[in-house]
Design a protein around this nucleic acid. Structure first.
Lengths: 237, 237
DNA sequence: ACCTGAACACCGTTCAAGT
DNA sequence: ACCTGAACACCGTTCAAGT
């Protein structure tokens, strides 16, 4: 039996760990992830993970970042100013429609973001605690801010728009109606809560509420921002 | 030494436990709460807590509910229909202003809610995972829904409004800008994130961003909902 | 009824040792 | 360089025992 050559293939890699951790989070939730369980799923012993990540939390951050990375940002590429110098406007048959550019981009982005979160609801609490140092999270914040200033929003407004969209989108995932109310009719005593007769509806119905609320809220948000945008552009009304 | 009489005073009570747990959460965060640490702060041994709560999680739920309980709901009492039967309208010198009732109530409530969360940011993740069976959380959802239907919103809309306000308010606390970005300038490489030059601003400045974003978002949301309300009331435009 | 210490089955993380 | 077992200082929770 000869001594094994040095470059034997590592059993683990950051990518493999993130993938397994993500699968575990999706399947069993955040609390189910322990270093020992995760390591077992990868066929190694617990401490091995520390050769690739400094802490368990760093692994969860990486899982969260992988979710952020799947959010489409391409709609922000072509966002230009409402009117005036048309060289920023996207080529295409929109005509004066370039006016609504930032609004449409925000709408499309919000949906892409929400879809990404809906695919991996269990990791959302980690995502929600902020971009911190996660590259994809920062890229996302950067893209929104850049597109809004490009569209003619003053920087201070662009910052606020980025933040308030974050509130709404992450809030819709973390404070979901479908996940927040229990399925048990007895929990909602009609004497204590006279208007909550519908709260215990079936899970399917509750998911519809979330979809409708997201759609309604997003439309209201964008309508309201459009009003502010117009007020900024034409100060004399 | 005579045998001690039975009704000696209990060392613990649910209220004392909730108070101590809340203080610990506020001071050191959610992860700092262990049954042993909490018990020590109360001068008892760990297992004693289980005489008053079934699990550690039930204690945290009670802490969260205590925060919900401080949210003012009184503004929903006097909300009436926009026009028509004036017996629902609040007494007062508003004149036709009763029209905006639900909007003003929502605005005041959102601020009260946000203030309560801002006082205890560390418990927000527990609150955000839903009212579940927490009485104050349910009362809150009940009040919003009741007031919105009272104001003339169709039930399906009222449900959505309750949900989307939840998203925004809890999102503003859980996905806070101030808490989500690190204080370290080096984290935001201008090559990778060309628009993020301001992200590392001082904590104080970041809190202002959150305040502004909440205000801007809330106004946009209510403006947008007002548009929808008018469209519902006067279908022919 | 309410509190205790001991115990169980877990944790995250460190570290010396192996290849 | 990368993986291991042993060890440390913790966890949440149960339970028999005490008053």
């Amino acid at each position: 039996m000869w001594r094994m050559a040095r470059p034997r293939k590592p059993l683990l890699s950051r990518d493999r760990i993130v993938e397994a951790a993500g699968a575990l989070v999706d399947a069993e939730g955040l609390e189910a992830v322990s270093t020992r369980r995760l390591a077992a799923a990868l066929g190694v012993s617990g401490p091995s993970l520390y050769n690739h990540f400094r802490t368990k939390d760093a692994i969860l951050e990486a899982v969260a970042d992988a979710v952020s990375a799947r959010v489409d940002l391409s709609m922000f590429d072509a966002v230009g100013v409402a009117d005036g110098d048309g060289d920023e406007a996207p080529r295409g048959d929109r005509g004066g429609g370039a006016r609504r550019d930032w609004r449409e981009a925000l709408h499309a982005w919000a949906h892409s973001y929400r879809d990404a979160l809906a695919d991996h609801p269990n990791i959302v609490p980690v995502l929600a605690r902020g971009p911190g140092r996660r590259p994809a999270g920062l890229r996302l914040a950067d893209a929104v801010f850049g597109a809004m200033t490009e569209a003619g929003w003053p920087p201070a407004h662009a910052t606020r728009i980025g933040a308030l969209m974050r509130y709404f989108i992450l809030g819709s995932a973390v404070a979901s109606f479908a996940r927040g109310f229990v399925d048990d009719e007895a929990a909602y005593d009609p004497v204590d809560y006279p208007h909550l007769g519908q709260a215990h509806l079936l899970a399917e119905r509750r998911r519809e509420v979330d979809k409708g609320a997201f759609e309604t809220g997003l439309k209201a948000l964008l309508d309201g921002l459009s009003l502010q945008y117009e007020a900024l552009r034409e100060p004399r009304a």
